[in-house]
Write a protein that binds this DNA or RNA. Structure first.
Lengths: 333, 333
DNA sequence: GTGAAAGCGCTAACAA
DNA sequence: TTGTTAGCGCTTTCAC
C-alpha cells in the first residue's frame, strides 16, 4: 500500500514532520521552503502515497466515520435515506458504515457496539427497540447519536422523523374526501412506534366505527399483506371502498392476493399507502400516498450529528419534524 | 468510551498482557489462573470495556472492514445486493462501508482511494469505468478486489455477474414466444457493459430487422424512459406489440408517459424488463422479467473476497456467472 | 502464571 | 526552516 511517511522521510532525507506538513497541505503554514516541497511532491508523485487513516485516527481520536443502523437496508425508504446520508458524508470527507438489525433488538445492540468499537464519530439509528435510559453525566462522554423515523416513548435521544400521526390523519381524510364510505387499514408490525402513530392518525380522522376497520399482522412484509387480505376476504361481505396500508410491502401482498383470488383489484377501490413506488401510478385505481422526504430527513440527521460532533448538542428529547408530501396518483379528474 | 486495557491493568494491578489475554478469550491458552480471570472479568462487568478497534487494526494491519462502491445505492438492485453483502459481513464480524459513485468515474476513483486509505481488507466494486491495468507484480501487494455486475473488456479483475447477454436473449425469445410481432427495446446508459451485453442478447434473439427496434438514452432514469417513449410516439405509427426496457426506471418512465399521453397503457402490449418490482404483477399486461439473484451474487462476491483475503486468489480474469430467473407475471393462461 | 517492552503509522508540541 | 520526540491503544514475543 504505497509508502509510509517514515519511508518517504528516510528516502528523501527529510524528517517525518516535514513530510507530514507538505502532504497535509500545511506546508506554507509551517514555512516549508518551496524547494523542499517540490522535492517531496515529486517523490510522492513518482512513488505514490496512501495515508494510513487507521494510524491517523488512532492519533487524532477521530475516525471520520459515521455509523448507521437500519432495521432493513433493502427497504427502499431506508435505502434512499442511506443514499442521501452517504452523499452528505462524502461531501464532508466522511465515510458511512451501514448495518441492518433485521428488527432484532439483540442484533441492533451488537451493531451499535461494533460501531462504537470502531470509534465512529457519530451514530444514526432507526431503532427497533426502546433505547435504554442513560444518565446525564454518562451521556456527555458518549458518541453523539440521533434517532430517525421512530420515536419510542421515554427516549431522550434527539429524533428526526416525519409526523407519522398527522400524515396518517391527512391521508385518511383525503381518502374520505375522495368518497370512501368504509375503509380498512392493514398494518404490519404494530409495535413499531411509527405504525402506532399512523394508527392513531387513522383513528383521529376516521373514528372507531364499523366503517373504519383495522387489521394488524406481526411483521411488515408481503406475506403479512397477503395474510390480512385473506382474513378480510374470509370474513365475507363486500370489499371496502378504500384500502389503506401501512407500507408498500403490505400493500403489495394485499393487492397480489386480491388479484390472484379475485382475478383483479377492483378499479374503483381507493388505495392509500405510505411511501412511493413508481408503478403505483399505473394502477387504474385512485391511489393516494404519503411520500416521505428521505433527502430532507438525511440532511436533518446529518446536520444534527454535525452539530453534536461540533459540541452543539441539541436539548434532550428534541424532535425535528420533516414534512412529507401527500400525493394523488390518478385522482378522478 | 469505557476503560482502556492500560487503565484496567493499572486499576486491577495486572499487566496489559494479562488483561489482553482474558479479554480476547485466550486466557486458558496462556494459563491465566481462574482467580485472576474472575477478578478481571468482574472488573470489566462492572466498569465496562469497549475495545478500540482502531488501535487493534493499526497493530494487526487488518481492519475487519470491507468496502463496496456502487454506482447508485438507492437503486433497488444494488440496495438488495448490499443488504445481503452486509449480512455476510456481519456474520463474520466484518463491517461494510458502502459508497456511491453516481456513475462518475472521478467520484469512483476517489471512493476507492478513500477506502484504501482506511485499509479495508477487500473491495467490492460495481464499476462505472474500466479499471486501469495494473502490472502483475503490483497486483500481488494490493487490496483484494472483486468486480460485480459489469465487466469492462480488458479488465483482469475477478468478475461476478449475471450473464446479461444470455438473459436478454432468453427474455427476448420469451417475448417472441408470447406472440410479439414487433418489439422496441428502450436502453438507458448504453455504455454500461451490462447494457451492451443486453443489447447483444436482444439482437441475438430478435435480429436487426424493422420489427426489433432499439432506442437509447444517455442515462438510466425515469426521465430517460419518458424521453424514449416520447420519441417513439412522435415517430407515429402503431405502438409495438412488446416493449422491452433495460431497467425498472426506464420502464417506469416509459409507462408513465404512455399513461399520461394516451390515458392508459394498452393492456395487450407485452412488457419485458430487467429486475423485479412487486407492483408489476398488478398490471393487466403480460409482464416478463429477468430477476437477478442478489443474494447469490452477494454470497459469491463475499466468498471471492474471503478467498482472496485468505490468499487463495482466483486466476486472473476469472468470471463467475450467477443464474438469474425468468419470471412470467400474468402470462396468458 | 504473569510482566516488560517494542512497535503498528501518524500528529503536533516543542527544540534547534 | 526543519528535526526530535512522545505518545494514541493495542498485540505479541520473549523473559522472568
Amino acid at each position: 500500500m504505497a509508502k509510509t511517511i517514515s519511508e518517504i522521510a528516510e528516502e528523501t532525507g527529510y524528517s517525518r514532520t516535514t513530510i507530514t506538513m507538505v502532504l497535509s497541505g500545511r506546508a506554507s503554514e509551517y514555512r516549508i521552503s518551496a524547494r523542499t516541497q517540490k522535492i517531496i511532491r515529486d517523490y510522492v508523485d513518482e512513488h505514490g502515497y496512501t495515508i494510513n487513516q487507521t494510524a491517523r485516527n488512532l492519533k487524532t481520536q477521530r475516525s471520520h466515520t459515521i455509523g448507521f443502523v437500519a432495521p432493513e437496508i433493502a427497504n427502499p425508504f431506508f435505502a434512499r435515506f442511506m443514499a442521501h446520508l452517504e452523499a452528505c458524508c462524502r461531501s464532508e470527507g466522511l465515510v458511512l458504515i451501514t448495518t441492518s438489525s433485521g428488527e432484532d433488538p439483540l442484533v441492533e445492540a451488537r451493531a451499535l457496539q461494533s460501531l462504537l468499537e470502531r470509534g465512529v464519530d457519530a451514530l444514526v439509528l432507526a431503532p427497533c427497540a426502546p433505547r435504554p435510559a442513560v444518565s446525564a453525566k454518562k451521556r456527555s462522554r458518549q458518541t453523539p447519536m440521533v434517532v430517525i423515523d421512530r420515536h419510542y416513548p421515554g427516549d431522550n435521544t434527539q429524533v428526526i422523523a416525519s409526523d407519522h400521526r398527522e400524515n396518517a390523519r391527512l391521508l385518511t381524510a383525503a381518502v374520505m374526501s375522495a368518497g370512501a364510505s368504509d375503509m380498512v387499514f392493514f398494518c404490519g408490525h404494530p409495535e413499531n412506534p411509527a405504525i402506532v402513530a399512523r394508527i392513531a392518525g387513522f383513528r383521529a380522522a376516521a373514528g372507531e366505527g364499523e366503517n373504519a376497520r383495522l387489521l394488524t399482522a406481526a411483521d411488515d412484509s408481503v406475506a403479512a399483506g397477503k395474510a390480512m387480505m385473506q382474513t378480510l376476504l374470509e370474513a365475507g361481505g363486500a370489499l371496502p371502498s378504500a384500502l389503506l396500508c401501512s407500507s408498500l410491502l403490505v400493500l403489495e401482498g394485499a393487492l397480489q392476493h386480491l388479484r390472484r383470488t379475485r382475478s383483479a383489484v377492483p378499479p374503483d377501490m381507493i388505495i392509500a399507502t405510505f411511501d412511493y413506488d413508481g408503478f403505483l401510478e399505473l394502477l387504474p385505481n385512485t391511489v393516494i400516498v404519503v411520500r416521505q422526504d428521505e433527502e430532507a430527513l438525511a440532511r436533518a440527521a446529518f446536520q444534527a450529528i454535525s452539530d453534536r460532533i461540533g459540541g452543539n448538542a441539541a436539548a434532550e428529547g428534541t424532535r425535528t419534524v420533516v414534512d412529507a408530501e401527500l400525493l394523488y396518483l390518478n385522482a378522478p379528474a
